[in-house]
Amino acid sequence: MNYKFVPSVCSYCGTGCGVLFEVIDGKINSTLPLKSHPVNKGKLCIKGWNLHEYINSFMRLKTPLIKKDGRFQKATWDETISHTAKNFTKIKDQFGPDSIGVLVSAKISNEENYLAQKFTRAVIGTNNVDHCARL
């Protein structure tokens, strides 16, 4: 039996509480507060305590979906990225870069948020980038 605890950061809100995932034979069994984390000092809200549930949820999307013939269908990452790029370019060419906006999230890491704003400003060419915490 392989039994370990993996420290991580709660992805539900921008507070960024430290969590510990209890992992039994490669599967996350529960979430605990990380006692030595400076942000939450061993406490969590109800979302943090249940962080493992969406990881193991059968409803979790494991592949990207593209809407074809009026309904979402499974697609590969390559297909999806080129589909998205093609459509972004089309919108940008037709209506200008300010017709596109990007909303980033507290549920992703700083680095991912940084990349997203870089992509929005440098690649798409607009300052229309905002954060879900301001909604």
Partner: peptide, 29 residues
Amino acid sequence: ELDGHVIPHGFTKENLDELKDLKTGETRY
């Protein structure tokens, strides 16, 4: 101890080398 955090861990015969990191102290889970 992992990256400065003392956390629970399951030690097994297969991973005896991990025992060098075994810690006791104030931490309580």
